[in-house]
């Protein structure tokens, strides 16, 4: 079982490639498919390597990707909306 899981919200992505470039374990690659706005969102090519460090989530300027560590509740879930 991989240490983490990465989730991509493809419809928000603008294809800047930050997550693909800076993923420390090279889990992601830009896909050749389009989203509805015409950008190429990333897709997961090596799910077993994901460490759930959430660096992709910190880099993503469009809030379209995040990583969570497996077996761990995601941070800040309990802090509800104002």
């Amino acid at each position: 079982m991989p240490k983490g899981t990465v989730t991509i919200i493809a419809e928000r992505c603008k294809g800047c490639g930050f997550c693909v470039e800076f993923c420390p374990t090279k889990v992601l690659e830009l896909s050749t498919a389009f989203n509805s706005k015409g950008y190429h969102p990333p897709h997961v090519v090596a799910p077993e390597k994901c460490s759930g460090c959430d660096l992709c989530g910190m880099y993503c300027p469009d809030f379209a990707i995040y990583g969570v560590k497996n077996g761990n509740a995601s941070s800040g879930e309990d802090k509800k909306n104002k």
Binding site: T7, I9, H43, G57, Y66, S74, E77
Partner: peptide
């Protein structure tokens, strides 16, 4: 390994 296309992802910090 889920790759979703949903608009709102509550687990996104």
């Amino acid at each position: 390994m889920a790759t979703t296309t949903c608009e709102i992802a509550p687990a996104n910090p």
